[in-house]
Nucleic acid binder design. Structure first.
Lengths: 190, 190
DNA sequence: AATAATACATACCGGTCTGTATAGTTGCAA
DNA sequence: TTGCAACTATACAGACCGGTATGTATTATT
């Protein structure tokens, strides 16, 4: 399974944090699920906070990878790639393990503005936004920043909606809106 | 200030729950902020969970009122009212006390699907959605349910975005997208 | 003046949380 | 075989949480 104990602990913790919430997941539960002990956990992660940040960092990489790969598989043209992002998220949100966006959820759990969790969430959000903006620019959008922000808002809105009502088809409805917005942004540009 | 102690406690708790998060707000902190004691709190609210649900119920009423009144003040035609909703949320999210959507945040804090908090969040979401759908139908949208879902997703997406980056103008960018979607939905209908 | 309702003050209980201390076990390598 | 490092096992410290018990002060009603 896991190459080493540290990875195994992080993987176990990550799954629990995502499925049950971070504050709702105690260190003891992580240790038991991973089949190890607190001493080993605290050897690799000086505190639960460090473990949480490692979880978010890992989730960031995993999420971005999944988005980029899924996009690449589905389309080659920038405009089609923008639409493919919605297909990727549709797939993600159709999985039975889907529990919403790990960053939105984590940020809601740690409300204080100065909390490192907030920074981690913003970091992912910025990176993702940048990907979309680049694609929008390549596609020739009139206002690439505005368009990509709108698409990102549709996606996070759909994630929240799908989290509240499973199988609501929110992501596909969002994709339809995206199509209209993209067409309109490209039409005005030429 | 407050007509009676019960309202005063609820109001204090509500403010703390919203600004700091629910799990992060202890009963002692509420009691201290309200200038009362635990005994009095537990006289009116049998448990913290009851207080949390009362807070969500109160927030639901307050939010819906604010939306409906703000909408009424700004527009009279259905189509204009749909756009006015974005202006209302823009005002809301510009306030320094803005901390995101109380329902999205609460639902993220209480992840278990069966939790009453989830039901409370879904309840608000459904009611709000219904308001938008009615307006979309009155305006003559081709697919009122789809349009209202898209508008709702833009709004929650913008709320999340604005929560992450204050003063990002997310709500106004969302409003621009809404305008396009509404126009398009009405154009195709006639 | 007696009574009842409301709220306050304070101490406490059981449970859970993060984090640590201490001791024992396994496996591998020189 | 001996030694060392990684890991396990378990118990515990200290803080904090939700919730309760006991008793008192204040006010209004009758």
């Amino acid at each position: 399974m896991a190459r080493n104990l540290q990875d195994h602990i992080l993987q176990t913790a990550s799954a629990l944090f995502y499925s049950q919430g971070i504050k709702a997941t105690g260190v003891d539960a992580i240790v038991k699920a991973a089949g190890t002990t607190k001493m080993s956990l605290y050897k690799y992660f000086p505190s639960k906070d460090d473990l949480v940040l490692a979880h978010l960092s890992k989730s960031r990489e995993a999420m971005l990878n999944r988005i980029l790969i899924g996009m690449e598989q589905r389309a080659s043209e920038p405009k089609q790639k923008l639409l493919a992002v919605f297909a990727v998220f549709d797939e993600l949100s159709s999985s039975p393990e889907f529990r919403g966006c790990p960053f939105i959820n984590a940020a809601a759990e740690f409300a204080e503005a100065a909390n490192p969790v907030q920074r981690a969430a913003a970091e992912f959000s910025d990176t993702f936004q940048q990907v979309l903006t680049d694609l929008a620019r390549q596609a020739g959008a009139r206002d690439p920043e505005a368009l990509s922000q709108q698409l990102a808002m549709l996606i996070s809105g759909a994630i929240v909606s799908e989290q509240r009502r499973r199988e609501s088809g929110a992501m596909r409805t969002a994709a339809a809106a995206a199509k209209v917005l993209i067409e309109q942004s490209l039409a005005c540009a030429e």
